[in-house]
Amino acid sequence: MKEGRRYGIIGIAVCLMAAGVWVVGEITGQATSAGVTVAASEAVTTAPLSHQEGQFIPLGQPLRTAPSPRSSRDFDRYYELRAYDGAPPAIPHPVATEQAANDGCSGCHQYGGWAPEFAAEAPRTPHPELSACRQCHVPQRTEELFRSTTWQRRSPPEIHLAALPTSPPPIPHELQMRENCLGCHGASAVPELRTTHPERPGCLQCHVPQAPAGTWSRGGGAP
């Protein structure tokens, strides 16, 4: 059983308070089946669609969003490819060659979009200025391990921590290497992370980073 699914967390509303719902992001699938309204998966469809049969359409500006009915990626898979929230994800698809550090990665990942070759939404890189992709992203050639590990995966950050039901939720993760929000929240994102209002480009105007308590501080200045 996948780690993300291991928790059967359900919300039972007392009385008939349908408006007051606690959403636990990582188990949205089960939560839905348990009859709880899940705001996160209700992505608003705005034309035009990013995917069309048989061709790859890179997403330039302006930004569009659309849930992909055929995307193989979901929230669990998103975290499965990462050792921890913020780790560079492994490459989940075959690669053409080992020889170059950037073997046409940017063809699909510079803007993201539907990649018919893999029948998947190609996520958009949040750091297109870095060109040696294979420095950090590696394919997985085997499922096996050399020796087993006692690594404990940290739970993904909690989401929907808005102070009020109508206020924009704060950003629950670090922004380093993820300065471009559309990498994970744009049209090609997994449904749970997709923005509902891509026409508003100034994300940080309303969504503010939530600094963790007890941040390490260096004290003296850097040289």
Binding site: M1, R6, Y7, G8, I9, I10, G11, I12, V14, W22
Partner: peptide
């Protein structure tokens, strides 16, 4: 309000 259990 909230219930969580370990089993799958």
């Amino acid at each position: 309000v909230f219930g969580h259990r370990e089993t799958d």
